[in-house]
């Protein structure tokens, strides 16, 4: 009966666009920071509540809550997705310091750098 996907590098990525899977593979193979950012941006778009926020391009200064319509629950979902995918732990204090896309990208980069064995 089970149909759990097994053909993606991480089950959390299942059904995301192929370019996101490719970016994640580049990160895993070469630690490519640009690939991390591509995955983070895809997740931001994916977890954004429907029908909310501005439609202008998303940049580093874009605010998750005020511009993109995120609420506390959807921020928690986004953060868990990234934690699960990159196998990092984001603390409540970390989350409180993340208001913009730029701060989210920095937070993920910092967490990856702190991982044991990181270059």
């Amino acid at each position: 009966m089970s149909t759990q996907p097994t053909d993606v590098p991480n089950p959390a990525l299942g059904r995301l666009p192929a370019r996101v899977l490719e970016a994640f593979e580049r990160f895993r193979a070469r630690g490519d920071p640009a690939a991390v950012e591509a995955v983070v941006m895809a997740a931001v778009v994916d977890y954004r509540p429907a029908g909310s926020g501005a439609t202008r391009p998303i940049g580093d200064a874009t605010l998750l809550i005020d511009d993109l319509g995120y609420d506390s629950v959807s921020v928690a979902e986004l953060v868990f997705f990234l934690e699960d995918l990159f196998e990092v732990t984001v603390t409540n204090e970390d989350i409180q310091g993340v208001r913009t896309i730029g701060e989210l990208r920095s937070c993920v980069a910092r967490k990856l750098a702190e991982k044991p064995g990181a270059a």
Binding site: M1, S2, T3, Q4, P5, P11, A12, G14, R15, L16, A50
Partner: peptide
């Protein structure tokens, strides 16, 4: 059957937001 909502499908006549 999957624990991931991304894998779920249902008849097209019903709209269920992500």
């Amino acid at each position: 059957d999957s624990p991931s909502w991304r894998d779920w499908s249902w008849p097209a006549e019903y709209e269920i937001p992500r």
